[in-house]
Nucleic acid binder design. Structure first.
Length: 514
RNA sequence: GGGCGCGUAGCUCAAUGGUAGAGCAGCGGCCUUUUAAGCCGUUGGUUCAGGGUUCGAGCCCCUGCGCGCUCACCA
């Protein structure tokens, strides 16, 4: 039972709750009669003041008790709802001794209260509800972490705020309840996703949903999560990307499609990697990677403008300007400029491996050429791509779904967008030649060892779809969580994911049956 | 998975190997315009868990658990 482990403090609250019930007062009433939120109440009162008629604005407000100051025959309190805080002013004059005592005796920080009264401005100038009646809406049995806000020169200084990351992530509800800036991050997150949708909707894109449980995973070199369907007696994978399904829709005539949803990759966790993450992919027929590049800088900057009201953001100590056009850096030229290596002079993995060994850049033996180039890119190029930069023209062998450049069969029309040295998005001119696609899958199969979990199984149905004819198209994917991280100035994805993954709390539990 | 660091009251934090403390929250009292309200008094601890060293361990050692940073991994 919940109450079995109650502390002294919690038992005290439990007793208060039970006493209320004994007095015939339901501590968890079914309905609330709140008729304004706190911010609107303040606005309405100020409007009446401006009109010279401040008296007589009677409202019923409600929210969580966040501060209480009892002063004998009167009490002040602050309540908080989604719109913000408002002060309650309770006097013995309006309430009488018994009712005021009820507040002092039975109401604690964290409880939800409903108060009816008249809007006034106190002597210190704060717009306040002078309470004529109140009632409990929900009794909190646990106390929220104590935090007090002090206003110093207009800045809010919080004392003893909840900061322990484990508690914050494990009990995100507590974090959200006491840390308004955390609520703000997730308000922005919602705004970003909404703005992304609007951007695509305005351009005639159709939003779709494709399978998360897939018999064959693909579209990215990633290790999948596996699961099992009992009735179908079939192993299924949680998708690692949407790509192969969305391109099937291009075959089906959905010329402009997108999906926003969750991808799952069974890999390491870091400040920029989470096992499940939100991805936006869109595909646009009759477009190529140049079109998509321009669209990307439009999309990212316009979303920032809509949500933050600015295209200039602060990230990891850098002032970053998202205004188009962004920097463009060709992969080969970038490596010549920043690494002094012309990859065209090293057509084999062995040649590149030698020069990397000479420079003491670690890599696993037997790594294919494309992956080595990628390592060079991460070493030399990522750190210089602080301002928004498109890195374009990738090696063919790490881009099995991208179309080769007409003049260079070993290079594909692909770009990644970087901000603050972190990869934000990935796009290419889509490969629509079914026979070439089949060849790429086969090449890829040979490049990976038999037991390499990143080795993608061949998706025969995808090839079948391509064989029916897919229009030339540009495709695009963006890590929405990373985007949110950048726009909110956070250092880690965990701060923009409501419930980040944590190890199980109770390890005393018996081993789960395998 | 490797390395490093951390784990003390509900929260934020103290405590040379020698009686575990403070502020806030809580509880009792005073207080009719407060806002980190104030004043007086006061409760509250499996110091993450288990083992070891020691006359004596929050502190030193070992193991485990959890969290963080970092490396590896990561189109």
């Amino acid at each position: 039972m919940l109450t079995d482990h109650f502390s002294e403090l919690e038992n005290l609250r439990l007793e208060k709750m039970e006493q209320l019930r004994q007095m015939g007062i339901e501590p968890y009433p079914t309905r609330s009669y709140k008729n304004s939120n706190n911010a609107d109440a303040i606005k309405a009162f100020e409007a009446r003041e401006a009109a010279g008629e401040p008296e007589g604005l009677k409202l019923t407000l409600a929210g969580r008790l966040r501060a209480i100051r009892n002063m004998g025959k009167l009490s002040f309190a602050h309540i908080e709802d989604r719109s913000g805080r408002i002060q309650l002013f309770m006097r013995i004059n309006e309430l009488g001794q018994e009712k005021l005592d009820q507040f002092v005796r039975f109401f604690d920080l964290g409880d939800f209260i409903e108060a009816t009264g008249t809007m006034v401005r106190t002597k210190r100038g704060e717009v306040t509800l002078q309470v004529e009646d109140f009632r409990m809406l929900s009794k909190a049995l646990y106390q929220l972490p104590a935090a007090k806000d002090e206003v110093v020169d207009g800045e809010i200084v919080r004392h003893a705020a909840l900061t322990d990351p484990e508690t914050r992530y494990r009990q995100r509800y507590v974090d959200l309840a006491v840390n308004p800036e955390v609520r703000e991050i997730f308000r922005i997150r919602t705004g970003i996703i909404k703005a992304l949708r609007e951007f695509l909707d305005e351009r005639g894109f159709q939003e779709v949903e494709t399978p998360i449980l897939q018999p064959i995973y693909g579209g990215a070199a990633a290790k999948p999560f596996t699961t099992y369907h009992n009735q179908l007696h079939q192993q299924l994978f949680l998708r690692v990307s949407f790509e192969l399904y969305l391109k099937r829709l291009l075959v089906g005539g959905l010329d402009r499609v997108y999906e926003i949803g969750r991808d799952f990759r069974n890999e390491g966790v870091s400040f920029k990697h989470n096992p499940e993450f939100t991805q936006l992919e869109f595909y646009m027929a009759y477009a190529d990677y140049n079109t998509i590049m321009e669209m990307t800088e439009q999309m990212v900057s316009q979303v920032a403008q809509r949500v933050l009201g600015t295209m200039v953001i602060e990230y990891e100590g850098h002032k970053i300007n998202l205004t188009p056009p962004w920097n463009r850096m060709q992969m080969r030229q970038g490596l010549i400029d920043h690494a002094g290596i012309d990859i065209q002079e090293y057509p084999t993995a062995e040649g590149l491996a030698d020069i990397m060994k000479a420079r003491q850049i670690p890599f696993k033996p037997g790594t294919p050429r494309g992956k080595l180039i990628n390592t060079l890119m991460e070493t030399y190029l990522e750190p210089v791509m602080i301002q928004p930069t498109f890195l374009y023209d990738y090696p063919r062998d790490i881009s099995p779904l991208a179309k080769a450049k007409p003049e260079d069969p070993n290079t594909v029309e692909r770009f990644e967008g970087y901000i603050g040295g972190v990869e934000l998005c990935n796009a290419f001119t889509e490969l629509n030649d079914p026979l070439d696609q089949e060849k790429r899958f086969l090449e890829l199969g040979r490049a990976y060892a038999e037991d390499d979990e990143e080795r993608n199984p061949m998706d025969e149905d995808f090839l079948r779809a391509l064989a029916y004819g897919m229009p030339p198209a540009g495709g695009f994917g963006i890590g929405v969580d990373r985007f949110v991280m950048m726009l909110t100035g956070q250092h880690t994805l965990r701060e923009v994911i409501l419930f980040p993954p944590l190890r199980e709390e109770d390890n005393a539990a018996p081993e789960a049956a395998e």
